[in-house]
């Protein structure tokens, strides 16, 4: 990681208001106040974005916070590092199309034929965020992250159903890609930058990487097995 040692607060200060959508700038007074991650839960990945530009970061934070709002069960998606997770994935090999066949010629294909976009995931997300931003500004005169909660919900629901016409990007494919990033960021090992303090694992009761249950499967048959979840970093 190139930005080791630069904490999130300093980073946000350094890059100015463009990315400062975490707190009061979000036009979202109706949402409950985010619950801070516990002080012991230092992020595994340092804050700051490798791929997303400030506008894209503002969108991504608002999007993951809409999917994963702060409530009694966990802090918000952004607080859990989910936007950072998405950024790292987009910046890395997966975002650049590793393990994908990206040669032409290109045709739209049928839904059964799957991904036929000529774009690698990072290019698709970049184009998709820009197209969705244009859509939101056209319809509501505001970017996604400044929409009121109801309008945001309407936009996400329409995107999920593929009902928004986006220039150059199939909206369902964009939603599926963003949704996968958000859920991976909540539930993947914290080594990737999300799931801070293993909050996603705590949410469902997944105990993590330690798993020697040859006796437990009988001992705990019918009883809930509870253990402090262990991540890769915890054991490394």
């Amino acid at each position: 990681m190139t930005d080791e040692g630069l904490d999130r607060r300093r980073f946000l200060g350094a890059i100015g208001a463009g990315a400062a959508t975490l707190g009061a700038d979000v036009a979202d007074a109706a949402e409950p106040a985010p619950i801070a991650a516990s002080p012991a839960a230092d992020p595994v990945a340092p804050a700051g974005y490798q791929f997303l530009n400030p506008d894209e970061a503002a969108f991504m934070e608002a999007f993951v916070d809409h999917l994963i709002p702060a409530d009694a069960l966990s802090p918000s998606g952004t607080e859990l590092g989910v936007a950072v997770y998405a950024d790292r994935q987009l910046a890395g090999a997966w975002g650049k199309g590793a393990r994908m066949y990206l040669q032409g010629p290109w045709r739209k294909g049928t839904p059964n034929q799957g991904w036929q976009s000529p774009m690698a995931p990072a290019d698709l997300v970049k184009a998709g965020i820009a197209a969705l931003d244009a859509h939101c500004r056209r319809v509501a005169k505001l970017p996604f992250e400044r929409l009121a909660p109801d309008a945001r919900e309407e936009t996400v629901a329409a995107l999920a159903q593929g009902k928004i016409e986006l220039d150059g990007v199939p909206s369902k494919l964009l939603f599926d890609t963003l949704y996968a990033l958000a859920t991976e960021g909540l539930f993947a090992d914290p080594i990737y930058g999300g799931n801070r303090d293993k909050a996603g694992w705590r949410l469902v009761g997944f105990p993590g990487v330690i798993a020697t249950h040859a006796q437990d499967i009988e001992t705990y048959r019918g009883r809930r097995y509870e253990a402090e979840p262990m991540s890769i970093a915890d054991m490394s």
């Binding site: 809409h66 999917l67 994963i68 709002p69 409530d71 069960l73 966990s74 919900e153 996400v156 999920a160 949704y179 958000a182 859920t183 991976e184 539930f187 993947a188 996603g200 694992w201 949410l203 469902v204 009761g205 997944f206 809930r224």
Partner: peptide, 29 residues
């Protein structure tokens, strides 16, 4: 029960938001 892939939810559960989180936690086990 790996949680990226394994999160069974009863029919009609929302796919995101606080209700989704609560249902994912409740029904996982």
């Amino acid at each position: 029960g790996r949680p990226i892939a394994y999160r069974p939810l009863p029919p009609g559960t929302p796919k995101w938001g606080s209700q989704w989180k609560a249902a994912a936690g409740h029904w996982y086990g």
